[in-house]
Design a protein around this nucleic acid. Structure first.
Lengths: 198, 198
DNA sequence: GCCTTGACAGCACGACCGTTCGTTCTCAGA
DNA sequence: TCTGAGAACGAACGGTCGTGCTGTCAAGGC
């Protein structure tokens, strides 16, 4: 057999992440992606079999990349609050240095009314992320860093909200103060989680 | 002259808001919109002159609708914190009862890397919304409802973050607890704004 | 040496895209 | 009654979309 298919596939997906970050998952077309990778339309198409499958593959690749650059490194931090802050810091660093916006975030608002395999994949990825945040908070409760009556899912919800607002402020408004706004919000949220009820 | 152009234009835009809420602003096509309104493609096209202009018109219509159903009624509430809560409550009611997602929110993450008149229009609309929230908070500070050292822009930023998270939870996850999660978040945010530093 | 296998290219398809153009119809004013 | 403005139509344009079909070329197994 000629070139290994797997490496070509990875090359395609790497380019796809860049293109989709700019034009969204719906704006990603096989023709433009073929041109970006130097492949022919049909040659590229053969790797996925359908546009739906390509979209799912792109989302999975984005999820893997997200886990690899944010979640996995952060999980090396000590259990408890340090791990929660590591997740936040990793996310902040990634969100600010990245050229295009976060594909998964954009897709969340793009696919919310378009049933299909792509949407299903995305729901799972986003749920996992919220669960990761909530689970880290739960551990921090067990370690005594966070108060015992904290609702970890609520904390995850609000953390995620701050991330969404940060993303919009940085990407849409091109506002450099997004990072400091985010840090202030996170600090307030963590302080509230720490504070014991009297 | 035959049928008044303005009423036709309004009909088109009303349909466009529904379609775009489902498939996004980029997924909105002249052909599908013509079919939805019962017009011919060329007949519809003549009302706007270009796809760009149509997108801008749709965004403006969405902005008008947003102001009419949320901002204007809320501004009738008494100055200060009641007005802030009115804005929040109006938004919550609108977000939950609405069939499709919020077009403006979806567009914020769709257009953030696509320069053009549509993006410019959207930036202005979203800035206005954040300014409205911040301004209401500023008034609440002057009325003595909120603490004097509050950062109203930071509050608006965090309020908006909660709205984004609520939107995602309700629309993507179809999670009915989104509303209660939102209310809990808003309550905590307002309590913090109220509390005087000692 | 063939033969299989699999990764790609080339080409063509039907459908739809945004856009243009000429035509038809209907009304308001003269 | 005639005229002209303007709303809407129908057909067509060049492109691009996603998707198939066929062919080519290189690398193993025999």
């Amino acid at each position: 057999m000629p070139r290994p298919a797997e490496s070509t596939r990875q090359t395609i997906l790497a380019h796809a992440l860049g293109v989709a970050a700019r034009v969204g998952l719906g704006g990603l077309t096989i023709g433009s992606l073929a041109e970006a990778t130097g492949l022919s339309k049909s040659g590229l198409f053969a790797h996925f079999g359908s546009k739906d499958a390509l979209q799912v593959a792109v989302l999975d690749a984005a999820g893997d990349h997200f886990i690899e650059t944010i979640v996995r490194p952060a999980l090396k931090a000590p259990r408890g609050e340090p791990r929660v802050t590591a997740l936040i810091d990793r996310w902040l660093a990634w969100a600010t240095e990245q050229t295009g916006g976060c594909l998964l975030t954009a897709a969340s608002f793009e696919l919310d009314d378009q049933p299909g395999p792509a949407r299903d994949t995305l729901v799972k990825l986003q749920r996992d992320w919220l669960d990761t945040l909530a689970q880290a908070a739960r551990i921090a409760m067990r370690e005594g860093h966070f108060r015992a009556d904290l609702d970890p899912d609520q904390l995850a919800f609000e953390l995620h909200g701050l991330m969404l607002a940060t993303h919009e402020m940085a990407r849409l408004f091109r506002d450099v103060s997004a990072t400091s706004r985010a840090r202030a919000g996170f600090a307030r949220l963590l302080a509230d989680a720490r504070r014991r009820p009297d």
